[in-house]
Structures are given as structure tokens and as C-alpha cells.
């Protein structure tokens, strides 16, 4: 069983990675219409096949899955049916007057004042559109009259696509094998792997267990700075998240002394030259970055073709 010695420090360094992506999400007819109507400060609900009024509007019934029949305007008043506080924000379930469902939103008041059954009304945030946060939250309104659901003859066109972004942060553990590999890269500018369970060539990246035999891998071994291309392609396209300006060569390289591939770039000046002269079997050499090494693959700036 894998286990670390007692002496292992608790705070191991980690490798930071971020995945940050832009999206354009389609809310669909019901949510798209609800969000489009936010600028008019109207709360759009839907009448379901079984007669229930649901707000915010839903395409399909949560109880029986049937599609909605038509849009209605829900009142801006209702009551709290449940609540909690998370990170200092009061989040409650609210049932708007005349509606059969509840939905979560923020309560803009002190916790002591919040009670189940309390009357509330929507408070709007000026300048916010296309978001349920155009309703800033709900405020206590003990005297608010009971509102009624109204027919909606015309509604804004549903929003077809909504900008959205998701950013995920990671602190990846190096583990003993990647840890040593990157220490060697940083400290000595050399790429080390471990021998396979039944083979003298090094596995890169190194690991405890051989992928093929599922037996323990062997001893550490230094690989050369030189190697052979196993596969490569010439990148002409641009895309979000790209780190180098095209054209360049994407290469999967087996370093001398290793058995598995390492992925890197080869810079090129001339695409036609690269097509003819860079391919499987081409010999290449790692060009290390100048200055202090960080202990990552980026310490190898690029590979270049060896004239042999």
C-alpha cells in the first residue's frame, strides 16, 4: 500500500493549474423568456399542463415532465417557505403569490427578522439585465397585498445565448515520482524517468506502477536531451487557450533512453520545409530556457531539429 513516511512535511508544494473557459449558454424558451423580461422588471412564470403556475418559468413540469402551455406574469410578492444562511447571505425558498412552486433567492434583511411564512416582495437592481440577479433579492413586506397571476399576451423574444464563464482552480500534488522528476529538471536540467518493470528504457513521466504489466517500476535513469519524433503535426490554426503563435510543430518525442513520449513544440520558419523535413523518425534536441529553471516542462523552451 502506498504510504508516506512520518517525516513527510504536511505542506507539500503543489502545481497550480487553472481552467478558465468562456461559454455562451442557451437557456431555452422558458428561462430565455424569463431572463429577457428581466429588463422590463417582470417575473415570467409558466402555466403547466396540469394547471399549476410555476415561477420562474420552466419548460417542463418538475412533477410530471409535461411541457408548459403558456407564459404568465407572476406577482412580485410572496412568502418565505424555508431559509438558511450561507457565507453570510440569507438564501430562502420563496413562493410567489398564486404559484404552486418555490424557488431559491436572496433575502435582503437581517436574519432575526426572517421567518417562515413572512411576506416578501422583489427588489430590483437597476442596470442588470438577462440575469435572475436583476432581482437583487427579496425584502420583507409584511403589509404587501396578495398579488395575482396575470395573463401575458406578449413577451420579449427568448434570449438565445448568454455569456457565461467558469474558472476552476487546482493545486495538483506532485507525488513522489513527478516530484523528483521536476526537482531534477529544476536542479540539474536533466530529464529523469524510471525504468519499466521489465525494460531498461525509462518511462516518462515516471510512476510507481508500470502501465502495461501493473508491476512496480525500476530504478531512476537519466534520459538524453536528444530524441526521435514519433508523431508530429504542423499547427496552422489559432484557438482559445493557445500558448504559441502558429505556425509551429506539435511533436510527440521519445527521448534517447526513454520508451514513452514527451509532448512539445518545434519552432519553424517555413511550413513547406517542415512538411518535407520534419516527421516520424526526425532527430531532435531539447533547447533549455536561459536563466533560472522553474521545475516544469516549460524549462525546455522548445525542441529543434538536429542536422545529423
Amino acid at each position: 500500500m502506498f504510504s508516506a513516511p512520518e517525516s513527510m512535511p504536511l505542506d507539500m508544494p503543489t502545481f497550480h493549474a487553472e481552467i478558465s473557459l468562456p461559454y455562451t449558454l442557451t437557456p431555452g424558451r422558458a428561462a430565455g423568456t424569463f431572463l429577457a423580461e428581466m429588463k422590463n422588471k417582470r417575473i415570467v412564470g409558466s402555466r403547466m399542463a396540469n394547471g399549476d403556475i410555476v415561477a420562474p418559468a420552466q419548460d417542463f413540469s418538475a412533477s410530471d415532465g409535461e411541457p408548459m402551455t403558456n407564459f404568465v406574469e407572476a406577482p412580485q410578492t410572496g412568502e418565505i417557505t424555508a431559509f438558511t444562511r450561507v457565507d453570510g447571505n440569507i438564501i430562502a425558498f420563496i413562493r410567489l403569490d398564486g404559484c404552486s412552486n418555490q424557488f431559491p433567492h436572496r433575502i435582503l434583511d437581517q436574519l432575526d427578522n426572517v421567518k417562515i411564512g413572512a411576506r416578501v416582495k422583489a427588489e430590483w437592481e437597476d442596470g442588470v439585465e438577462q440575469s435572475i440577479l436583476a432581482i437583487k433579492g427579496f425584502v420583507l413586506a409584511p403589509d404587501a397585498e396578495v398579488g395575482t397571476v396575470r395573463a401575458l399576451d406578449e413577451v420579449e423574444e427568448a434570449i438565445g445565448s448568454l455569456p457565461y464563464s467558469m474558472a476552476l482552480q487546482y493545486e495538483h500534488a506532485y507525488g513522489p515520482y513527478y516530484g523528483r522528476m521536476f526537482d531534477e529538471i529544476k536542479g540539474f536540467g536533466r530529464v529523469m524517468g524510471v525504468r519499466g518493470s521489465s525494460n531498461d528504457d525509462a518511462l516518462l513521466p515516471p510512476r510507481e506502477i508500470d502501465d502495461i504489466t501493473h508491476k512496480p517500476t525500476g530504478t531512476w535513469k537519466t534520459c538524453a536531451d536528444t530524441g526521435t519524433i514519433r508523431g508530429c503535426s504542423i499547427i496552422n490554426m489559432e484557438f482559445i487557450g493557445q500558448t504559441l503563435k502558429p505556425p509551429y510543430v506539435y511533436a510527440e518525442i521519445v527521448l534517447d533512453g526513454a520508451s514513452t513520449r514527451l509532448i512539445h513544440f518545434i519552432e519553424i520558419d517555413d511550413v513547406e520545409y517542415a512538411k518535407k523535413n520534419i516527421g516520424p523518425g526526425t532527430r531532435v534536441r531539447a533547447i533549455w530556457t536561459q536563466g533560472e529553471r522553474k521545475g516544469s516542462m516549460a524549462d525546455i523552451e522548445r525542441f529543434e531539429v538536429i542536422d545529423e
Partner: peptide
């Protein structure tokens, strides 16, 4: 902190 996913899995 001292193990990767693959270390725990294997």
C-alpha cells in the same frame, strides 16, 4: 499532499 491520483489508484 504527497500522492497523485495515480499513486492512490495504483
Amino acid at each position: 499532499g504527497e500522492a497523485q491520483h495515480i499513486d492512490l489508484i495504483s
